[in-house]
C-alpha cells in the first residue's frame, strides 16, 4: 500500500518544493542582484528610515503580545479553574467563533466602531485593532495548557500549605509557560508583518514593515530591495521563534 501512496507523496513534495521553497530561494538570489551582492541589504540596514520602520513594527508586535497576554490570562484561568462546566464550552465557543469571520471584515467592523467613538487613524486605534484581532489566539493557547494541569497537583499544594499566591506563582504560572510561549510566538510573528490592521486603522501612523514591503513591490516596483527586506523579515521571524522555543526548553526542564 505504501508503494501506491508513493506517487502521491512525491507529487505533494514536488508541489511544496516548487511552489514554496523555490520561490523563497529565488527571492534570496534576486535580493543579491546588484553590483555588490550585499548592496541591497546594506542600503536597507544603513537607511535610518527603514530601521525606524522595522523597529516600529517590532514595538507594535511586542506591545500587542504583552497586552494580549495580560488581558487573556485571567480569562484562560477563569475558564480552566473557576467556571461551571455547564458554561465552559459555551464561553469557549464564543471566543473561537469570531476566528471564522473574515479578517478584513472583522477589522472593518472595528473600524466603524472606532470611527463612531472618534479614535481612528492613530497609534491607539492600531493597537486596539491588533489586540482585537489577535488576543483570542493567545487566550486559547494559554487555556490549552492550563486545562491540562491536573487538579491533584493543586490539591497537593493546598495540603502542603501553599497560599493561593504561592500556588499561582510556583505551580500554575510555570506550568502554563508553554502555552504563553506558543501564543506569544504566534501573536508576535503575525503582528510584526501585519498589513491589514495598520493600513486600515493606523492612518499615517500605520506605516509598518508589512506596508513597506507592499509598497516596495506594488508601488515603487523596487523588487530587489523588496526581496532583500523580505529576507531580513524572514530572518527576524526565525530568530524570534528560535528565541522563544529556547526559552520554552529552559522552562520545561
Amino acid at each position: 500500500m505504501y508503494s501506491s501512496l508513493k506517487i502521491l507523496i512525491i507529487i505533494s513534495i514536488i508541489f511544496l518544493f516548487v511552489f514554496f521553497y523555490i520561490p523563497l530561494i529565488e527571492m534570496f538570489i534576486y535580493s543579491l542582484k546588484s553590483e555588490n551582492p550585499i548592496e541591497n541589504y546594506v542600503s536597507i540596514l544603513k537607511n535610518p528610515l527603514y530601521i525606524r520602520i522595522i523597529g516600529y513594527s517590532l514595538l507594535i508586535s511586542f506591545l500587542t503580545t504583552i497586552i494580549s497576554l495580560i488581558i487573556s490570562y485571567p480569562i484562560a484561568y477563569y475558564l480552566a479553574f473557576i467556571i461551571n462546566e455547564k458554561f465552559k464550552s459555551i464561553i469557549l465557543i464564543a471566543f473561537i467563533a469570531p476566528f471564522w469571520v473574515n479578517f478584513l471584515l472583522r477589522t472593518y467592523a472595528l473600524y466603524n466602531v472606532l470611527y463612531m467613538i472618534g479614535i481612528i487613524n492613530n497609534f491607539i486605534a492600531l493597537l486596539i485593532g491588533m489586540v482585537y484581532d489577535y488576543y483570542p489566539y493567545m487566550l486559547l493557547s494559554i487555556y490549552a495548557t492550563l486545562s491540562k494541569i491536573s487538579k491533584s497537583i493543586l490539591d497537593a499544594s493546598f495540603l502542603f500549605g501553599a497560599t493561593p499566591f504561592q500556588r499561582f506563582t510556583k505551580i500554575i504560572l510555570p506550568l502554563s509557560m508553554p502555552g504563553i510561549i506558543a501564543g506569544s510566538i504566534f501573536v508576535s510573528l503575525t503582528t510584526m508583518t501585519e498589513f491589514i490592521v495598520p493600513s486600515m486603522l493606523g492612518g499615517v501612523e500605520g506605516y509598518t514593515v508589512g506596508y513597506l514591503i507592499w509598497d516596495l513591490f506594488l508601488k515603487y516596483r523596487n523588487w530587489f530591495k523588496g526581496s532583500a527586506l523580505s529576507i531580513i523579515i524572514i530572518s527576524i521571524a526565525l530568530i524570534i521563534s528560535l528565541f522563544y522555543s529556547r526559552k520554552a526548553k529552559v522552562v520545561l526542564i
Binding site: 511552489f19 520561490p23 527571492m27 503575525t190 508589512g210 514591503i213 526581496s227 523579515i233 521571524a237 521563534s241
Partner: peptide, 14 residues
C-alpha cells in the same frame, strides 16, 4: 512560520 507577506512576494516574483 514564515511571514505571509514574504511568502506572497516570493510567489509573485517566481
Amino acid at each position: 512560520i514564515i511571514p505571509e507577506i514574504a511568502e506572497a512576494v516570493s510567489l509573485a516574483l517566481f
